[in-house]
Design a protein around this nucleic acid. Sequence first.
DNA 1: TTGAAAGCGTTACCAC
DNA 2: GTGGTAACGCTTTCAA
Lengths: 336, 336
Amino acid sequence: MVTIRDVAAHAGVGESTVSRVINESPRVSPETRSRVLAAIAELHYRPNPLARGLSLGRCQTVGVIVPFFTHASAVERLRGVGAAMDDSRYDLVLFNVESPLHRSEHVATLHRRDRADGLLVLSLPLPPDELERFTRAQVPVVLVDTRGEGVPTVVTDDIEGGRIATRHLAALGHERIAFIGEDPDNDFGFSSSAQRELGYREVMRDAGLTVHPELVRYAKHDRRVAQRVTEQLLSQRVRPTAVFAASDIQATGVLAAARAAGMHVPDDISVVGFDDIEISSYAGLTTVRQPLYESGRLGAQLLLRALTRGETPGADAHVLPLELVERSTTAPPKRR
Amino acid sequence: MVTIRDVAAHAGVGESTVSRVINESPRVSPETRSRVLAAIAELHYRPNPLARGLSLGRCQTVGVIVPFFTHASAVERLRGVGAAMDDSRYDLVLFNVESPLHRSEHVATLHRRDRADGLLVLSLPLPPDELERFTRAQVPVVLVDTRGEGVPTVVTDDIEGGRIATRHLAALGHERIAFIGEDPDNDFGFSSSAQRELGYREVMRDAGLTVHPELVRYAKHDRRVAQRVTEQLLSQRVRPTAVFAASDIQATGVLAAARAAGMHVPDDISVVGFDDIEISSYAGLTTVRQPLYESGRLGAQLLLRALTRGETPGADAHVLPLELVERSTTAPPKRR
DNA sequence: TTGAAAGCGTTACCAC
DNA sequence: GTGGTAACGCTTTCAA
């Protein structure tokens, strides 16, 4: 392996001079610089990032904590992150979180500059004390799709999202509108679904519609599970004429259940989802679109900016817009 | 930041002893060990991976080179990789490849032990000389969904996959079977699609069916593009009664095009895809299933095994099974 | 069984 | 402008 020492010898200069050339210091004469550059090229020299990191106290790496398996939408966000990181000099290290234990483990190791220079947390709620450990350790953190004190966040207004979806259904004339979302008591503390439910309840109340308890169901963020739950929902006495699913993944499960029950969408039942993932446009699903890809990209950009400027990023919340995408799964209810 | 030195001082021992404890050397007395362990716990000490890597000559990191954006199926493979790496002590560094230039860049930096201890290449063909640089640099490489000499690979038999799909359609009685795949002249040198086309052509010939040149079309690995190409296909003189799409992403485009043309699937036209991704079961797509998740998992396992044993892994090709999944997009052609 | 010290490849401070 | 050298935090010989 060729080191800075070899380059120095080959170019007939000192190690520090080579280092200066590498780091583009202005305190090198043009001739020396070109001689060193030639030596570097000739020997195919590349600085050892480990040694560099040890000396510098940082490692040119951005860590991303993400519930990779739990949330399909996380992938789309991750894509945005990847895109933003592409032109940067930072490596992207993935910390997958499958369980709450997992999360604590990663958090414990990551609040030091030698693991990652900065951290991006996707969709995962972080307790305030854990969050504080990062700021104390001077590790910049950006939160995407989760809230937190004192750090920049990229979020959407989930309550408003719930309103948008429900308002759309109510405006079409629906009265028995069901809600299918994630259990508010989930292990990770995911709260988006609960927020959307809040918006749903608010609009229902304001429209003078009653939320029958049997019309609110919880299911894991998974198509098949949502399908099963919807089948129960549809087999009961009080049938909804519309369903608001807190995610598109779940909405496709609702669609499948309706189909299996011999119901026609949207004539027999309307369905609204949330996210607008790849599958949604294919399924013709009416949904509340949130900019997944963009959220990841923006989050990464904020982090990179903080990293390159060396400043702690402002703790402002960037609220990304939500938008109703009307496709073919919603229509006025049938006349009885 | 607490270092090994602090721990040593706190426990009243030498640094090397602490190091031995960390690395589970047997040459430490039980009492000393527990004293050191206590100090570690008390000070919340964690070894600096950078320093450790520099000293050790490796960095406890696995690099994954993956066309993250180009191929949707890569994500599913990546999930498998993530699962396999979860219980390991290795970090997962993502190297996204969006362009051939991108690939060369990453390859250039990665053939050294200081960037990654081992490498996983997903779906990306690597020129033999680039591959050789890794083996020369003693960096273990495992190829998933690509072939290469001298390194372990995890693949499927794409030619056979093409046969399976086409045989299914031919057995149903179809004669004018179209093929939609990726352009064999693509920038990356992806060849799976071309292989599947080979299998398609072989079965067509053996069945005495002619492959009309107008019935073979190329489109990017993208639903909308595939849809556009299919629209052209369906608007021409000789209409196919069945389409074999080289990927499910493209197959959903075919489905959308047929729907837009007012055709009913499978009555008017049959469609077979390839991969069996998440969307396929939802769409009821008949497809050739390949174990995406499993391929990533196996690849990562092979790499980890090689890494922990310190041995160069055997250069054998693990061929994963392919399987026809019959759903509701294929049926015998209508009688004319 | 333990500790002192050299070394891993780099950067940065201090002389010249 | 440039070179020598101490540091960065760890592992690993080598002695004791």
